[in-house]
Simulated assay, not measured.
Amino acid sequence: MNKNFKTVAESQVTMSLLMLPSHSNFSGKIHGGFILSLLDQIAFASASKFSGHYCVTASVDTVDFLNPIDVGELVTLKACVNFVGKTSMIVGIRVEAENIQSGEIKHCNSSYFTMVAKDELGKPTQIPGLRIKTKQEYRRFLNALNRKKKQKEINNYKVDINYNSEDLKNELSQYNVIVENLI
């Protein structure tokens, strides 16, 4: 049993990059796929720094694109471990873009990546526990725990569907869908 504990600060990673035209999409904004790649990189760095092991992305719980990022802005990603299990951890990431001429900073993205630590054979391996020192760290841990519980409920949700039910057809009528004869 690993009795080692590390602080959230021991997982913190910050990365800043100037957004170039080569990072943009056809509308002239920074491509979401490019930002996703940066998110994965910083999640890896934070999780590996915390665990002391090579880490892989197990899932991405949330990626909320809140504001577009323009070419020429300085993008800063901040990551830290919010929650730990036995071999996995949830890394919270915040993305901000700064207009380097005006100094205006906007929150562009928040994301949560579940990362798993691997040993030399590629098997999941024990990670340190998390030492929480601030109310913000405690809030983040509890929020991550709540997201995990809700995801488990979604994954375990089973429903017996009567596909011929008039109630179901009426309910679906409010959506942009046509259900044809099901086979």
Rank of each mutant, 00 (worst) to 15 (best):
Ile105Ser: 01
Lys150Phe: 08
Gly33Lys: 03
Cys55Phe: 13
Gln126Asn: 10
Asp61Pro: 06
Ala79Asn: 10
Asn2Ile: 11
Glu96Ala: 02
Gly72Lys: 00
His31Asn: 10
Ser59Leu: 05
Met19Cys: 11
Lys158Val: 06
Phe113Met: 01
Leu36Ala: 11
Gly122Arg: 03
Met15Gly: 00
Phe44Asp: 09
Phe34His: 09
Leu172Pro: 07
Glu98Val: 00
Glu10Ile: 02
His31Thr: 00
Glu166Asn: 12
Val71Arg: 00
Lys148Met: 06
Ala43Cys: 04
Ala97Arg: 10
Val84Tyr: 03
Asn99Trp: 05
Val56Asp: 11
Val95Ala: 10
Gln174Tyr: 07
Val81Trp: 09
Ala144Ser: 15
Asp40Tyr: 08
Ser27Lys: 13
His107Lys: 14
Glu180Thr: 12
Phe50Ile: 00
Ser165Met: 07
Lys6Ser: 03
Asn67Asp: 08
Ser24Gly: 04
Asn176Leu: 13
Ile90Phe: 03
Lys150Leu: 15
Leu142Ala: 08
Ser165Arg: 05
Val63Ile: 13
Phe34Ser: 02
Ser102Asp: 13
Ala58Gln: 07
Asn143Gln: 15
Phe50Asp: 01
Gln101Ile: 14
Ile42Glu: 01
Ile42Lys: 02
Leu20Met: 04
Val179Asp: 03
Phe65Gly: 00
Glu10Asn: 06
His23Lys: 05
Ser173Met: 14
Asn170Tyr: 12
Glu10Ala: 04
Tyr175Phe: 15
Lys118Thr: 05
Phe83Asn: 14
Ile105Gln: 06
Leu145Ile: 03
Ser16Val: 07
Leu36Arg: 06
Gly33Arg: 03
Ala117Asp: 03
Gly52Val: 10
Leu39Glu: 09
Ser59Glu: 13
Lys3Phe: 09
